[in-house]
Amino acid sequence: MSTVIGVACAEGVVLAGDRLAVTDGHVRSRSHRHVFEFGEAGAAIVGAPGDVDAFADRLDAEIRSYRTERGQLRIDPFARLASDLADDRGVSGVVAAPDADGEPALRSITPGSVTEDDVAAFGSGASVALGVLEAGHDPDASLDDAAELTRRALDAAAERDAGTGDDIDTYRLS
């Protein structure tokens, strides 16, 4: 299934995810993206490979429409939009965008639900990754330290979970 994580720190937010795509216990791809950048917004999403791709395409279109009609996208409308689309596609994950004050913010999204978190993990290796994240999270850390923490968490998940791969993509918002 893959694993995606998000970490908020003093300097911003880091989203990360591996590139493995597994369906019904079979590796379908070792280069499938789960982390997406939309300018000053990002998302790391898990689910069936086709559902993740369809979610990202639809989210990109909705973001462009939102920006045309309303201007800059902030975290709360972005997270609600992503959660509604997650409900349509059966995916989950983490999103990042500036809050109302322009500061980077992290939200967990599941179908129909949004949660504010400092650390979050979804996917087949989420429990292992979350253990590493919670043990090592420092809210005052630098963005580089947060990126290193995401790397350690995904490495730990890849060691213990057949559905999590070694190749990792990241998105940083500062």
Rank of each mutant, 00 (worst) to 15 (best):
1 M>K: 01
1 M>W: 00
3 T>Q: 06
4 V>L: 10
4 V>D: 12
5 I>E: 04
7 V>Q: 03
8 A>E: 11
9 C>A: 12
9 C>L: 10
10 A>V: 08
11 E>D: 15
13 V>P: 01
13 V>F: 10
15 L>S: 05
15 L>Q: 06
16 A>N: 04
16 A>L: 05
17 G>E: 08
17 G>Y: 06
17 G>R: 08
19 R>I: 10
20 L>S: 04
20 L>A: 11
20 L>Q: 12
21 A>L: 04
28 R>K: 08
29 S>Y: 05
32 H>G: 03
34 H>A: 11
38 F>G: 01
38 F>K: 02
40 E>W: 07
45 I>S: 02
47 G>C: 12
49 P>N: 09
50 G>M: 11
51 D>N: 14
52 V>K: 02
55 F>M: 07
55 F>V: 04
58 R>C: 04
58 R>S: 10
58 R>T: 14
60 D>N: 06
61 A>E: 04
62 E>P: 02
63 I>S: 02
67 R>L: 08
68 T>M: 10
69 E>Q: 10
73 L>T: 08
75 I>L: 14
78 F>R: 00
78 F>V: 04
79 A>V: 07
80 R>H: 05
82 A>L: 06
82 A>W: 05
82 A>Q: 08
85 L>D: 01
86 A>T: 07
86 A>D: 08
86 A>H: 07
87 D>V: 00
88 D>W: 00
88 D>I: 01
89 R>I: 00
90 G>E: 05
91 V>E: 01
92 S>D: 09
92 S>C: 04
93 G>Q: 11
99 D>Q: 11
99 D>P: 09
101 D>K: 12
101 D>V: 03
101 D>F: 05
104 P>W: 07
105 A>S: 15
107 R>L: 15
108 S>V: 08
109 I>W: 07
111 P>E: 09
112 G>V: 11
112 G>Y: 03
116 E>V: 10
117 D>V: 14
117 D>S: 03
118 D>S: 11
118 D>A: 09
119 V>I: 15
120 A>C: 14
121 A>L: 13
122 F>H: 15
122 F>M: 02
123 G>M: 00
123 G>S: 02
123 G>A: 01
125 G>Q: 01
126 A>E: 11
127 S>T: 14
129 A>V: 12
129 A>E: 07
131 G>S: 14
134 E>F: 08
135 A>I: 03
137 H>Y: 11
139 P>I: 08
140 D>T: 15
141 A>G: 02
143 L>V: 08
144 D>W: 09
147 A>S: 14
148 E>P: 01
148 E>T: 12
148 E>R: 08
149 L>R: 13
149 L>D: 03
150 T>Q: 02
150 T>S: 15
150 T>G: 14
153 A>L: 05
154 L>H: 09
155 D>G: 03
155 D>A: 13
157 A>T: 06
159 E>I: 09
162 A>V: 05
163 G>T: 04
164 T>S: 12
166 D>T: 15
167 D>W: 04
170 T>G: 00
171 Y>Q: 06
171 Y>M: 03
172 R>H: 13
172 R>P: 03
174 S>G: 15
